[in-house]
Nucleic acid binder design. Structure first.
Lengths: 238, 238
DNA sequence: CACGCCAAGTGGTCCGACCACTTTGGCATG
DNA sequence: CATGCCAAAGTGGTCGGACCACTTGGCGTG
């Protein structure tokens, strides 16, 4: 990290830096096409294998996008592109980290919900209402759709803030597999009913454009989930 | 995303999924060593090139770590490992996204600072005080150390919450290059003095273990930075 | 003019060789 | 016997070239 000079560095890594520099210098802009892998490797003086590994690295970072037979393109470089890797955290996280992720959500979601109360458009509020009804219409059984609907509801709220970066981060912290795991042990009791009530309160606060109420409702909701998960983790402590 | 079946998928991608599955199934745990590239490629029925690209992908995601001549290891899978890629966002972000990142920080830092007020240990508070003095001792000139010290101060606060995930996310949103860019146009005037005053207020609130005051001070601080950056971006609008 | 096919060019995969580095165990040295 | 060195084995890193799979655009056919 703090090494003053650039001593020895892998060939592939140099290729990565070169491409990043090309983008930073505006040599290739978002959405534009890069030179051929063969061209790039020749220009940078590396083998095509190494060049491919460099491209693979930038692809997994969401900076580049390779289209088979068509070429390699720079993505739009939107936050959503670059933060997609985020979901990996939620995928492999366990125990303590899971709680930590929820704690971060407890910081973000209330603030985001409050912001949404001030910024959401009427159309966005209508969409939220529709999502809410869809969730109400379903039976009290646990299924993939339940998780999906809950996810969609919260994601729609965060998107209503108009902050794409925030939405991308929150989405990463709320990956499908993550939520499925949280819900797994809690399909019983009146949990679903309570969550629905929370959602209704949040929606009402948004429609009333009341940031304070929205913040409070969102906080309560996340705390509820966090509490259940905490009890669950404490039970089967590793 | 929603395609029902797993039709065609790249060989490399399958290799990535296989390794992820190995980790998820506990076949290899954090810190343990994976089979050799040659073994893995043979076992999964792919070429070593593709296997290497898969490993490269997981390496850039922070899941694996390759040591030249020694083998490929699974990282500790700590949040810090997996969120390192985050800094890429701050590196390539421009204009609007920069503001959005700051908006997210304005949501996170106050909450984190308030939490730190309740949780920080005496040793951590002492360290914060030392960092503060170090910043005070420096002249009012803009240099890399100024950015570095500011970064360290805020990072130390967030780490005091004991939430490693939160710390990793915040670090990603506060990368060195990001801050350098924010500061670039504002080395003049009494900016440095004002920021110092903010830091002192935050530190006092932490020492007093006053969450409310800490939240307020942190909010003020981030808003100040956000406001300056906003004016800057509005000036040289693209 | 519209349609469909084909060839050129691109990324995707595979192979085999060699290089650079780490590790280890045995050998020579004290 | 203890110590340190060094060579060999094994690992990831790089290379070059071949071939496959796919997209694209233009050409020829109806």
């Amino acid at each position: 990290m703090h090494e003053p000079d650039g001593e020895r560095t892998s060939v592939t890594q140099r290729a990565v830096e070169s491409v990043k520099a090309m983008i930073a210098d505006g040599e290739v802009g978002p959405g534009e096409r890069l030179p051929t892998e063969r061209d790039l490797s020749a220009r940078l003086g590396v083998s095509r294998s190494s060049m491919r590994e460099a491209i693979r690295a930038l692809t997994t970072l969401g900076v580049l996008e390779a289209r088979h037979g068509a070429g390699v393109y720079v993505t739009a470089l939107r936050p959503a592109d670059l933060l997609e890797t985020f979901s990996v955290l939620a995928e492999v996280s366990q125990g303590r980290t899971l709680l930590e992720v929820l704690q971060v959500r407890r910081m973000l979601e209330p603030a985001a919900t409050a912001l949404a109360a001030a910024r959401a458009s009427d159309a966005q509020l209508d969409r939220l209402g529709a999502l809410l009804e869809r969730m109400d219409g379903e039976p009290d059984t646990f299924c993939a759709d339940t998780v999906s609907a809950d996810l969609g509801f919260h994601q729609a709220i965060v998107e209503s803030t108009g902050n794409a970066t925030l939405a991308a981060i929150n989405e990463g912290l709320s990956s499908r597999t993550f939520n499925a795991r949280v819900w797994a042990g809690h399909r019983e009791a009146g949990l679903t009913a309570k969550l629905r009530e929370d959602h209704v309160l949040i929606h009402e606060a948004l429609v009333a454009r009341d940031p304070d109420a929205a913040r409070a409702a969102a906080t309560t909701h996340v705390m509820r989930v966090e509490r259940w998960l905490g009890a669950d983790l404490a039970r089967d402590a590793s």
